[in-house]
Simulated assay, not measured.
Amino acid sequence: MSLLDFYDSLLLDLDGTVWEGGRAIPHAVETLTASSLNTIYITNNASRAPEDVAKRLQTIGLEVTDKQVLTSAQSAVSLVRESYPAGTKVLIVGSESFRDLARAAELEVVDSADENPEVVLHGHNPETDWAVLSEAAYALHAGATYIASNLDTTLPTERGLAVGNGSLVAALVSATGVRPAAAGKPQPTMLQQAAKVLGAQRPLAVGDRLDTDIEGGNAAKMPTFHVLTGVSGPIALLEAPAEQRPTYIAQDLRDLHRRPEELVPGAQGGFTARVDGADVLLERGDDAADPLAALRTVLEVAWSLRRPPELIRPMSAAAEKAASAWW
């Protein structure tokens, strides 16, 4: 039985997991098209409306509706409405679609701190500039509540890691001393909302970033599936604190079709691992073994330690070959 047989739905991150800069990550579309599970796409990126995200997913070959998309902007607006009534004034650092979501939730969107907004909502928008950030700073200094869609410091693109919403949030924190509440991952809210939308009983949270996707899934008490196609690579896994450790470690989405026991940390590929002082020794191994088999072998031991190992020391030719693929 494959991993997919044990779950009834997939809660999928987008950037770094399904696409990168709007281009499909290899094998993602084919794998998801072949899956019969209910799926929902959950993104910390607040710059696009759900229907726009769905259309972009359609262009890479996925059959998706806007009901299968949940953005951090939607969650941020929901957070406001949990505590504030209709008609509350909000100043939005973000895209026009973020403003549309706020208006649809019966919030009054204003453009100036002089209009005394009660809340500043902050989401990713490539057009955000000094003037917009300064207007938000004025409002925060005047006592407005600060809510960010997400705190991702970087955003994966086809050219590499670009500046993410969290980096611009950091500028406002530096200028005002006000730290925001965050709606997106790693808070469990979005994943819990997504599971509720699907009526899921056994959801699997899928993502590429340990400090958002995986930590969020763990916080929501869901099994987590980490792919090495985006931000967090082998070194991040080796150094991951307990709350950021995934249930399954995969190369890409194709591994959803593998057996669960092949994807969890543990001895694989003929490798063994043991502690030697502050180091972990990687020993033995089959010549043709997958580097991820070696990584999963090491992770079982590394995660049993009180702190990350100082070194991973390959002790065989096969171990040296496997470990060299991690760096």
Rank of each mutant, 00 (worst) to 15 (best):
M1D: 10
M1H: 13
S2I: 01
L4D: 01
D5K: 11
D5Q: 12
Y7I: 06
S9L: 04
L11Y: 01
L12V: 03
D13M: 02
L14T: 07
D15P: 01
E20Y: 00
A24E: 09
V29F: 02
T33C: 13
L37I: 02
I40S: 08
Y41F: 15
N44D: 01
N45Y: 04
S47M: 04
E51P: 02
E51R: 14
V53C: 06
K55G: 10
R56G: 15
G61Q: 13
L62E: 03
L62G: 11
E63I: 08
V64M: 05
K67D: 15
Q68E: 14
Q68H: 06
V69N: 08
Q74L: 02
S78F: 08
V80P: 03
S83P: 05
P85E: 03
P85D: 06
P85C: 03
A86F: 09
A86D: 12
A86C: 10
T88A: 05
L91R: 06
I92H: 14
G94W: 02
G94E: 05
S95D: 03
S97C: 05
F98H: 13
F98M: 15
R99V: 10
R99S: 13
D100W: 10
L101I: 10
A102E: 11
A102R: 12
L107H: 07
L107E: 04
L107M: 05
V110H: 13
D111V: 12
A113V: 09
D114M: 14
D114K: 15
H124E: 06
D129Q: 08
W130S: 10
A137Y: 03
Y138W: 06
A139Q: 08
A139S: 14
G143F: 00
T145S: 11
A148N: 15
A148L: 12
N150C: 11
D152W: 00
D152Y: 00
T157E: 08
A162R: 01
G164V: 00
V169M: 00
A170M: 02
A171M: 12
L172W: 12
L172H: 07
S174R: 13
T176N: 09
P186L: 07
M190E: 10
Q192H: 09
A195M: 07
R202I: 07
L204H: 04
L204Y: 01
L210F: 00
D211L: 02
T212L: 00
N218H: 05
T224W: 03
T224F: 01
G230V: 03
V231G: 00
G233P: 02
I235V: 15
A236R: 11
E239D: 14
E239H: 08
A242E: 14
Q251C: 12
D252F: 00
L256P: 06
L256K: 10
P260S: 02
L263D: 01
V264R: 12
P265G: 04
P265V: 00
A267C: 04
G269P: 09
F271C: 11
A273I: 01
A273F: 02
R274Q: 13
G277P: 07
V280C: 07
L281F: 03
L282H: 07
L282T: 08
L282I: 06
E283Y: 10
G285A: 12
G285V: 10
A288I: 09
A289L: 04
P291A: 10
A293D: 15
A293H: 14
A294R: 10
R296M: 02
E300M: 13
P308H: 02
I312R: 08
R313N: 05
R313I: 15
M315D: 15
A318L: 06
A318C: 06
A319M: 09
E320M: 13
E320Y: 03
K321W: 07
A323Q: 14
A323R: 08
